[in-house]
Amino acid sequence: MRKLIRLLCAATVVALTTGCVSTDEYAFNIEPWVKPYERSNLADPIMSMNRNPIARSYAKHVFESREGARGADGGAGGGCGCN
């Protein structure tokens, strides 16, 4: 598992530090199947994993203080690093 995580991190670093950063459309040439104008539902605050950050960080604290497990419980946060 540890090796897998490191491998994924390394792959992502490579992607972020190569031409993908500013030319991803050209590098991958993938047509988005959900157009920007079709994302109104996704942009609704009720679809956000972190709609209320102050309450969510507290809830996370309540669980982590009383459970042995830790990490990867913030939901993949997209642009938030809140995973």
Binding site: I5, C9, V34, R39, A76, G77, G78, C82, N83
Partner: peptide, 24 residues
């Protein structure tokens, strides 16, 4: 030390899925 990676994917006009992994 804590290392994390996350992937968020728009699947349809109404669905988002995410994956995350963390090593501590």
């Amino acid at each position: 030390n804590k290392y994390g990676i996350g992937i968020t994917q728009i699947v349809t006009k109404s669905m988002i899925v995410g994956f995350s992994a963390e090593h501590i």
